[in-house]
């Protein structure tokens, strides 16, 4: 039994940084980009995804010895979909405005490759506690990229941070303008591309060739 803290720390670091879902495993950006126009939506989406990843890891791992291997994908999808329904209902009850803005993208957590990928690769082969930590780690890794993209898009696109204007007025007086392209779809593609470039250029990160 691995009960020491360093073991969990290892799983966390692996998920958050070394094998970061978006940049390294090239997974899960499907739903990541459409909600990154503003920090508030990106943050709520990140929390929702991290919780779904953690609990799906916990539940699937607890069930792993009873799931017949030829129907395992369906069982995994059912567990994930049920968790997403609960998340969606909670958001509708307590954060109605944000759930309206997230529109269909909470539902799309079901087909998010990170969740199903971790269920397949990790939760089916490891104990529940490890899988829970692994879900949190991968969720946090995803959140990091999502929030970074949202920060840049909201700052450059509308000069705001969580809805508050942060670009000082004298910059606008000097001729600075918000970059309209950043709040549109292409801005998200450019920022992701540049972030991946930045991450690949940092030391200690191996990067894949095309």
């Amino acid at each position: 039994m691995h009960t020491d803290l360093s073991h969990y720390k290892e799983i966390l670091i692996k998920g958050v940084w070394r094998e970061n879902p978006v940049a390294y495993q090239v997974l899960g950006i499907c739903s990541a980009l459409a909600v990154t126009v503003k920090m508030s939506t990106a943050l709520v989406m990140s929390i929702a995804l991290t919780l779904v990843a953690a609990f799906s890891g916990l539940i699937i791992s607890s069930l792993r010895n009873w799931i017949p291997s030829n129907i395992r994908i369906i069982v995994e999808l059912t567990v994930i979909a049920s968790l997403v329904i609960i998340t969606d209902q909670i958001l509708k009850a307590f954060l109605y405005d944000i759930s309206k803005q997230l529109s269909i993208f909470v539902g799309l957590i079901i087909t998010n490759c990170i969740i199903l990928g971790r269920a397949e690769a990790f939760a089916m082969a490891n104990n529940p506690a490890d899988s829970f930590v692994d879900g949190i780690a991968n969720g946090l890794g995803y959140s990091m990229i999502l929030v970074a993209v949202a920060f840049l898009r909201e700052l450059l696109g509308s000069g705001q941070f969580f809805g508050f204007s942060v670009i000082p007025q004298f910059l606008y007086d000097m001729g600075f303008q918000d970059m309209g392209i950043m709040v549109l779809a292409p801005g998200a593609f450019f920022i992701i591309g540049l972030l991946v470039w930045l991450k690949n250029s940092l030391p200690g990160v191996s990067h894949e060739k095309k």
């Binding site: 392209i181 292409p186 998200a188 591309g193 540049l194 972030l195 470039w197 990067h207 894949e208």
Partner: peptide, 23 residues
């Protein structure tokens, strides 16, 4: 293509340009 940009990053930037033309 510059070394770190090669692969995934480069594809995303191409996709960004495509998104602009579709707009």
């Amino acid at each position: 293509v510059p070394a770190g940009l090669d692969g995934f990053g480069f594809i995303m930037i191409i996709a960004g340009l495509m998104a602009m033309t579709f707009m």
